[in-house]
Design a protein around this nucleic acid. Sequence first.
DNA 1: GTAAGCAAAGTTATAACATAACATTTCTTT
DNA 2: AAAGAAATGTTATGTTATAACTTTGCTTAC
Lengths: 187, 187
Amino acid sequence: MPNTLSQHRPPPPSSTSTEPSCPAFSSGHNHHHCINQALDRAKTLCLQHGVRFTPVRQRVLELIWQSHKPLGAYQILEQLGGEGFNSAPPTVYRALEFLLEQGLAHRITSLNAFIGCSHPQRHHQGYFLICRGCGSAQELPTDTLADPLKQHAGAQGFKVESETIELSGLCPSCQTESGSNIVEPTV
Amino acid sequence: MPNTLSQHRPPPPSSTSTEPSCPAFSSGHNHHHCINQALDRAKTLCLQHGVRFTPVRQRVLELIWQSHKPLGAYQILEQLGGEGFNSAPPTVYRALEFLLEQGLAHRITSLNAFIGCSHPQRHHQGYFLICRGCGSAQELPTDTLADPLKQHAGAQGFKVESETIELSGLCPSCQTESGSNIVEPTV
DNA sequence: GTAAGCAAAGTTATAACATAACATTTCTTT
DNA sequence: AAAGAAATGTTATGTTATAACTTTGCTTAC
């Protein structure tokens, strides 16, 4: 029986370590640049906020920036454990909680997974496109796209405090090659 | 430590059985009418589709229509068990799966909870306003509100297949009485 | 420089949500 | 009434997340 209740889950891990062919849907970017930029911004921001960017927090941020694929907490935990960090769930959930508070990461509700924030200076909520083919997620670069929704809410007197806006489907390359280029997570 | 990781959860149950003061945010409606209408539509729709509206399926639909508050699977299960139904998780998850397939219910991802569909004839995805005060959720009566999002996705060549759009906040009555009228679930 | 106080991390256990796999029952059709 | 299909029962387990308490380590005031 097909299971329509299933939460979306990322594709299973593989042993390949190639760059994804569809990194957040834009071809051929240097992902090391993404990671380094994210780390630099995080350090700056933590200094500004007077909070500590501890080793485990930094490492978790690096791990969720490894690719543009949202990572589950237990996937992160597994990697941490292999690197000598404590590997009980609270370790990773605390680090993620910190990163979310600081606006450095987002939770992808429909995947029960986490991803680095692409626009931490804005500290907005993320709107996401999630590819079910390659597992990548892209944060839309604006927070004004859902204005009609907010207006409708406002017209009823509903005060919006937080938004979960996640669109799932297929990114351009996963459409064109009808699944043949589906890329396993690099992690 | 405040926990920003928390998934939203409905307020804990109470023993009161009064009507919620903010039933899907519109004052003073007769909720029995909601339930009866939903059941009638479900029966009709199942006949049309040639699928069986079995006792457990009907009862689960009634339970998620008990109020406008999304219900967790285990909350449903608990009530089923008290009524002589089998009370193992697959029972309720299968019934919910059926109701989702038939467009009679929605999953509220950010709550891990389920709610009756207010517009089953349309069989669209639901867009929801979720009140953190009273726990009620209202399905927005249109599926065109997120067009700017879809256009943005389309402009990138992303093919949207499913949408998770859930706005959380406070409904009018939970704003005005600053929490004093927070209504416990009726279930 | 050291003690107090607090933030962070360690540790153990468990809660909450969901599915796998296989057995049995019930419905429908012939 | 038998065969086949759909639904449900049953047992077990997988997956995600948090509670509660302990220990470690950083910071600041003296």
